[in-house]
Design a binder for these strands. Sequence first.
DNA 1: TTAAAGTAGATGCAAACGCATAGGTCACTA
DNA 2: TAGTGACCTATGCGTTTGCATCTACTTTAA
Lengths: 140, 140
Amino acid sequence: MTRANEAWESLMKAYAVLMKQFNAEDVWGDLTMREYDVLYQLSKCDSPLRMGELNRHVLLSQPALSRMVERLVERGLVERCPDLGDRRGVRLTLTPAGRETQRAIGRPHARSVARALSVLTPEELEQLAAITGKLSQSEE
Amino acid sequence: MTRANEAWESLMKAYAVLMKQFNAEDVWGDLTMREYDVLYQLSKCDSPLRMGELNRHVLLSQPALSRMVERLVERGLVERCPDLGDRRGVRLTLTPAGRETQRAIGRPHARSVARALSVLTPEELEQLAAITGKLSQSEE
DNA sequence: TTAAAGTAGATGCAAACGCATAGGTCACTA
DNA sequence: TAGTGACCTATGCGTTTGCATCTACTTTAA
């Protein structure tokens, strides 16, 4: 077992433990964490996001994301317009209601995250962000 | 946005990017990554594992894990015996076929992991393992 | 000793998922 | 400019998931 494998296993375990903890918190309203993640990704970009671009940031298959977006559109949280430049594509934006929902959930969730990571020193937080940033950059 | 939130978001992104990459690799045979994860967790402990214990390490609900184990038992990869000490419980072990399957998949997958993390220095690997270890320890 | 509360895992059921593939559009070449 | 292949999103379909609940067993305490 190499150092690399140990590090990856440790990362996976931390991810699983924290995800379970966050999921158990009572902040999600009638959204799932995955649905919230989609709203959050959209909230970060003010320019409309393409489906494929969104899919790169979300751990879902392309068809599953397509249908999740459809449900979010039906619920009035996301807007789906045709992309004028590329008529195969779709542009996604949050509706005002979607933005409000994202914020209402995001605030308490961000506090949970901060609490869960409060066992790390500021230096460790920097290192963690730098190292994981390096990992995701190298593969895209 | 605090440092903690940035670090968590960066960790999630690295997890998503690498998981997608690993999932796309052609090493899983007729198992899903989740099924492999269950076999892997079982392969780490030679003493039979309890369902609930296994569930703590796998990102699945208790009913979903129960049924996944059932399928793995039907496929002859996992054995489920009653726990003599606590007759509510179940003890899980890999069958020889399950152990062989885990190894056959684990070898090439471990190489993929090593390759994906090869952008990190040995020191960064140590830091990543230490920091993520601290995160999962603090919550259990 | 027995009733009440708690815990481990299984099951019914609707919702969501992934795989394969289809439909429609773009880009490049002949 | 028509044809070919790549690309983007949607849809059919069988499988898997989560939530709520159930049964069976253990633990606590009266």
